[in-house]
């Protein structure tokens, strides 16, 4: 799921050129609006929707909290 998160972050205009699993959302200059947007975009990929993320969550921790939902089409 890490790769999928990075892919979606790029899609919403976040600079992911220096992203790594240890990077936090805050370090990517994300704000509450982009966090909400990412969550909504992940709705097709995960079930249930991610909860408990903060701007200080790392991308690796975020990915670990997600359960892929392969039956839902993108």
């Amino acid at each position: 799921m890490y790769d999928r998160i990075v892919e979606l972050l790029f899609e919403i205009g976040i600079d992911t050129s220096h992203a790594s699993p240890q990077t936090t959302f805050r370090e990517l200059a994300m704000d509450s609006l982009s966090m909400t947007e990412l969550t909504v975009m992940l709705a097709d990929d995960t079930s249930p929707l991610p909860t408990g993320w903060t701007l200080d969550t790392t991308l690796a921790d975020a990915a670990a909290h997600l359960t892929p939902c392969p039956t839902t089409p993108r």
């Binding site: 899609e11 919403i12 205009g13 976040i14 600079d15 609006l33 982009s34």
Partner: peptide, 11 residues
């Protein structure tokens, strides 16, 4: 995206 930055353009 180039003129305004990708994030601003997207939003």
């Amino acid at each position: 995206a180039q003129a305004l930055g990708r994030r601003i353009a997207h939003r």
